[in-house]
């Protein structure tokens, strides 16, 4: 769909696709909430929702086109499974924390899942949200960090390093885990660990995962696919 629409952001979609599919197929039911804080991975989210039958083939074909609901970042309304328009980084975690606290006040069960990028932690508001979530011991909040080490214009370590990010996050009163973000069993195991405060799962991932010429390459944050790249990527993925 990125090829057909001529748009980029593929690298950061592929780095979180495994976790998104597991979450949406195995963990998110009627009581759960999911917030995509790294809104530029909307494509991966649309695919996850499509694979659950929540987005139609026709809708998916309209990705990034005129008169579509499937904009380059999640829309404000109209798609089941998407609660907030995101895309400006640093908002999603606060929205997730507010949702989790609201559920607690309403005495409702259900986990709130929030997927952030790693570069996004350069936004000050993410830390405001983490302070809030830890303070209120939001045991019904699970934060996932797509730690692919690359951002829009460089390696995260070179742009504004937070390394080691896990140590910073774990400095708060949260339940921190770090797992291989492309190992389904490791992701499931982390999601199964209960916590009495908010859970943070750092997913060690690769930008452009699954396509050799995209993997861990910064340019695939933005670049669209040409036809030759697209055919090559398809062959590689089908061979896996």
């Amino acid at each position: 769909m990125h090829f057909e629409s001529g748009v980029g952001h593929i690298g950061g979609n592929l780095s979180c696709l495994d976790a998104l599919l597991i979450l949406h197929h195995e963990y998110i039911g009627a009581s759960e909430r999911f917030i995509l804080s790294k809104g530029h991975s909307a494509g991966a989210l649309y695919v996850a929702l499509w694979s659950r039958g929540l987005v139609s083939d026709a809708q998916l074909a309209q990705f990034h086109r005129d008169d579509t609901l499937l904009a380059g970042h999640p829309p404000a309304a109209g798609l089941p499974g998407i609660r907030f328009a995101t895309g400006s980084l640093g908002h999603g975690l606060s929205l997730a924390a507010g949702t989790a606290l609201a559920l607690k006040l309403k005495r409702e069960t259900g986990m709130v899942y929030c997927l952030t990028s790693d570069g996004e932690w350069q936004e000050g508001a993410t830390w405001e949200a983490l302070i809030f979530a830890a303070h209120h011991r939001l045991h019904n909040l699970t934060i996932l960090v797509d730690h692919n080490n690359l951002q829009g214009f460089g390696r995260t370590a070179d742009v504004a390093s937070m390394s080691p990010l896990g140590v910073k996050l774990g400095g708060f009163d949260v339940a921190l885990q770090t797992v291989d973000g492309h190992d389904p069993e490791a992701i499931r195991a982390a999601l199964e660990v209960p916590g009495n405060t908010c859970r943070v799962i750092v997913l060690e991932t690769r930008k452009g995962h699954g396509v050799s010429f995209m993997q861990d390459r910064m340019e695939w944050h933005y670049l669209p696919l040409n036809e030759q790249d697209y055919r090559r990527a398809l062959l590689e993925i089908e061979a896996q």
Binding site: R83, F84, H91, S94, L95, A96, A97, G98, T99, L101, A102, L105, A125, A129, F132
Partner: peptide, 8 residues
């Protein structure tokens, strides 16, 4: 943002 989510 927390307030927005609570309103939601």
């Amino acid at each position: 943002s927390v307030a927005a989510a609570m309103a939601r």
